[in-house]
């Protein structure tokens, strides 16, 4: 059923990864090849369902003959390519990327593997000094200008949580600018373009036009941005509230895949249930109908079963 009907056969290419020969179909990325080899390669901005932007640079590897390191997520394996995934240069760059991110944004809600990578690369996120909140509002940052450089520590992206609608909250203090939400809102899935990257440099940020609140933007609350966010910067209101109350308990949650109750497209839902109550809805990335995407009804329209529960 999911076998592609039209894909032409692909040629095979052979290169080496960490000295071992690897043969993969043409077009396979270094990251895919590494994963096939069981080499744990850190990624932050990469997601199977999105076009690689290779912005985070935590997946860089060393390719013989290449002056700079190359991003594994988007570079295809070429014939004869010799890849090193754990050289001193690779380790240093990965460590620095993690240190730079850790020194500027709040990584505490990242997936557990991020913590693992921080340990593996011995990243010291404190080495640039104590965190210093930016002087001016980040939404007002102007391109090509910034205030006097911080001398007391490391300037961060700290800012207030954006809490402007009933469905989800945006805490850009946690944003690593991986572009995933922009891609999911844009051409990779939803094509609504409610958000984009605004500003530049350290002032770059995810924003609506003129930073208007979401209800004044083009947002249609599909929540596909929440699904792809790797740091908890975008979060279901239900999760945000429960975390605030100390009620959020992932260890007590079950995840059940089922089909959406609305239109006839047949979208797969993953219902995250805690204490017999749906607390969050995601969608499987590897299902070819949804590829992780839903609409507002599928993502947030589940409440009616709970309301009924409360009414008894």
């Amino acid at each position: 059923m999911t076998a592609s009907f039209v894909a032409p056969p692909r040629r095979l290419v052979t290169g080496t990864i960490d000295g071992r020969p690897v043969t993969v179909p043409e077009g396979t990325t270094v990251l895919q090849a590494c994963r096939q080899q069981g080499i744990d390669t850190p990624t932050l901005c990469y997601l199977e369902t999105l076009t690689p932007v290779n912005a985070c640079r935590v997946c860089v590897v060393e390719v013989e003959g290449s002056r700079a390191l190359v991003p594994a997520c988007s570079r295809a394996v070429e014939p004869g390519m010799a890849v090193q995934t754990d050289s001193e240069r690779v380790r240093t760059s990965r460590r620095l990327v993690l240190e730079l991110l850790g020194s500027s944004v709040d990584l505490s809600l990242c997936a557990p593997e991020v913590r693992r990578w921080l340990v593996r690369y011995r990243a010291d996120t404190e080495r640039f000094g104590p965190a210093q909140a930016p002087e001016a509002a980040r939404d007002a940052a102007r391109p090509g200008h910034h205030g006097p450089a911080e001398t007391g520590g490391a300037e961060t992206c700290a800012q207030p949580v954006k809490d402007d609608n009933e469905d989800y909250v945006r805490d850009y203090s946690r944003c690593i600018l991986c572009y995933k939400c922009v891609e999911a809102c844009g051409t990779d899935a939803q094509n609504t373009f409610a958000i984009a990257v605004a500003g530049r440099g350290f002032g770059a940020r995810i924003s609506t036009e003129f930073a208007v609140p979401l209800p004044d933007s083009a947002c249609v609350y599909c929540g596909n941005c929440i699904q792809v966010c790797p740091t908890g910067a975008l979060m279901f209101r239900s999760e945000h509230v429960m975390r605030g109350d100390g009620r959020w308990a992932p260890e007590r949650q079950t995840v059940t895949t089922t089909i959406c109750s609305y239109c006839g497209v047949g979208c797969n839902l993953e219902l995250h249930v805690q204490d017999n109550s749906i607390v969050k809805v995601t969608s499987p990335l590897d299902h070819d109908v949804t590829r992780g995407n839903l609409c507002v009804k599928g993502r947030f329209g589940f409440q009616f079963v709970q309301n009924r529960r409360r009414e008894g």
Binding site: T256, L271, V305
Partner: peptide, 26 residues
């Protein structure tokens, strides 16, 4: 019970695809 979240079964989509619904809630 709500068929999509409280029972087991199947539904068929617009591409004739039969998929499983599953019980997530009592």
């Amino acid at each position: 019970s709500a068929t999509w979240a409280e029972t087991e079964g199947t539904v068929t989509s617009s591409e004739r695809r039969v998929q499983r619904v599953r019980r997530a809630l009592d």
